[in-house]
Design a protein around this nucleic acid. Structure first.
Length: 574
DNA sequence: ATAGGGTTAG
């Protein structure tokens, strides 16, 4: 009777499960593990891990699969620390893990992100002889990728005896997730060469990779191949393609696809809205949201992020406030404003010059403001040259954002602009002490099925000579149009050394010159940059678009710049 | 009985 009750309770909410559990206890029967097992599984299913743990602790000598059930629950509910603690307890009690245990624990460790623990765990896996198991090995490979240990991950992946489709997909997916999309492409090509038949999972990751790389042509090619090979192109695949188009700056293609899609979900709509916002098409973004509401679809927190960033971009403060209030009043757990939304609001207010209001907004917010929020205000202070507030915020941020290089650079630039060189020194020393990493700037252009990368002053490209000649020629011509190299700007997150050294050989300038030489005249020149573009390159691109009548689409770390006839769609520079 | 892969934001 009781076991039937429990079996039937699997879909019940946690509080009802607890009542049933209480009932079981009051019957006075000796509670058998089989009953508790059912109970535990139900609790893990509904995600009440606290209660699940209680039930587990009541059990007498639980068998290994019960431990595993609990591990599964912890991992599924994103409680990596509980997972690891449980693993430790298990070892202390002398219970041996089996091959089902390790995938959970490895996943937890990679989420926590402590490399030495990862190594130790790998050693345990090897000691128990589980390393040759595909599933465990796959998790380990993903763990190393997440730790940034590319060579360990590659080595382990290569040494797997059996690499099935899931192993390939997992590896490619984690490459994309960790920002190594060029590597994902490399392995995709190898997968094809090895004649491993890919599936829709592969396609989704690869479309995402192409979005990251700005490789419109390669992305289209992969999608077309998927259609030809009769791979199931479900909503997720279509969404990924949509995102790829938008990340390549091709809002037109995206819209055509979006309108054609038979099945659309919140992600499709949000992708479009966010994409329009990124591309500076705020009107379309807001219009799409109106359509979405008409269709009766519920937005989620990502949708609102897109909306707020669209408002910020268009400088429509009241619209932004309207959407923010909509979130607050919606009473929908999915739409509660998170820190990112507050950061968006600060950005919106700050960008529009309402710095005081932005500051008050932060002071009044119910969540603890983080570096991202202060950073948004600091960026706005920099744009509006408000040194008083800027310094105040910089002072605050100096303490709370010790490890994010971009903020430190912004702070030191603010101090520099205010002439407070002792403060500049202090920040720089701190950066050096903390070893704040300076990410090297690079730009890339897709051409001929390949991605061409350029560093500043790069001479490694085979067409290098032609590129520099083209650059010289262009610089000469646009000087006549009124271009003056801007060496004085201090307000973006680039290092001083970078500013001082050959401004005219910035990676995006080389990439644009490369595009001018190679890209077909009717196509826009698409340039991707890993960091933010500097003022001078921005002005440069405007002039080039005017001089050559070519459209330049440049994506930097934050947003798109569509240059057409000497004008850019963005409001970040003027 | 229990284990590995995919889309939007940062």
């Amino acid at each position: 009777m009781l076991s039937e009750l429990l079996r039937a309770s699997s879909s019940k909410p946690p509080n009802q499960l607890k009542k049933i559990h209480g009932l079981v206890l009051t019957t006075g029967f000796s509670v058998k593990n089989s009953l508790l097992t059912q109970m535990l599984e139900n609790l893990v299913l509904v995600g009440d891990m606290c209660y699940a743990r209680q039930v587990f602790d009541e059990m007498h000598k639980p068998r290994i699969f019960l431990w595993n059930t609990l591990f599964k629950g912890y991992v599924k509910n994103q409680l990596p620390f509980e997972t690891v603690l449980l693993y430790k307890k298990m070892r202390d009690l002398g219970v041996r893990s089996d091959e089902f245990t390790y995938p959970f624990v490895v996943k937890a460790i990679s989420e926590i992100g402590v490399l030495p623990c990862g190594f130790a765990l790998h050693a345990h896996v090897m000691k128990n002889g589980f390393e040759c198991l595909g599933i465990v090995a796959t998790e380990l490979v993903m763990m190393y990728m997440k730790f940034g240990e590319l060579s360990s991950a590659k080595f382990l992946f290569e040494s797997m005896q059996v690499r099935d489709l899931v192993a390939w997909n997992a590896f490619i997916a984690v490459c994309v997730q960790t920002g190594n999309s060029a590597m994902a492409l490399e392995y995709y090509r190898r997968m094809c060469a090895d004649a491993v038949q890919f599936d829709s999972f592969t396609v989704v990751s690869m479309l995402s990779a192409c979005g990251q790389l700005g490789s419109l042509e390669i992305g289209k090619e992969i999608y077309d191949r998927a259609r030809k090979e009769d791979i199931d192109c479900n909503v997720i695949v279509e969404n990924a393609k949509l995102d790829m188009y938008l990340k390549c700056g091709s809002t037109e293609d995206a819209r055509v696809l979006f309108d054609e899609m038979k099945q659309k979900n919140v992600v499709s709509w949000s992708t479009m809205i966010v994409g329009y916002a990124m591309n500076g098409d705020s009107k379309e973004a807001l219009g799409l949201f109106a359509m979405m509401q008409k269709e009766g679809l519920r937005p989620n927190y990502v949708t609102f992020l897109g909306l707020l960033s669209a408002c910020s971009h268009a400088g429509v403060v009241n619209e932004g406030k309207k959407y923010f209030n909509m979130m607050v009043q919606s009473n929908d757990k999915n739409c509660e404003p998170r820190k990112e939304h507050y950061a968006c609001m600060v950005d919106l207010l700050g960008r529009s010059g309402l710095l005081e209001e932005a500051y008050e907004f932060i002071e009044k917010m119910p969540l603890e403001p983080d570096a991202g929020i202060w950073g948004a205000l600091l960026g706005a202070c920099a744009v509006h040259r408000d040194m008083n507030l800027g310094q105040k915020v910089a002072d605050l941020l100096v303490e709370t954002a010790p490890d994010i290089g971009a903020y430190q650079v912004l702070i030191s630039n603010i101090y520099a602009a205010a002439g407070k060189w002792d403060c500049v020194d202090k920040v720089r020393r701190k950066m050096r002490k903390l070893g704040t990493k300076k990410v090297a700037a690079y730009s890339s252009v897709e051409f001929g099925g390949k991605i061409h990368f350029f560093n500043r002053g790069d001479k490694s490209h085979p067409q290098s000579r032609a590129i520099y000649e083209k650059l010289e020629e262009i610089l000469k011509k646009i000087r006549n149009l009124g271009y003056v190299p801007d060496t004085g700007s201090v307000f973006h997150d680039v290092e001083t050394e970078e500013k001082e050294s050959s401004l005219s050989h910035h990676s995006e300038k080389l990439a644009i010159a490369f595009g001018l030489i190679n890209a077909r005249a009717e196509h826009p020149i698409r340039v991707m940059k890993n960091l933010r573009t500097c003022d001078d390159c921005h002005v440069f691109a405007k002039f080039v678009s005017r001089l050559t009548s070519r459209d330049i689409i440049m994506r930097d770390k934050n947003r798109f710049h569509h240059f057409k006839n000497g004008v850019c769609s963005c409001r970040d520079f003027w």
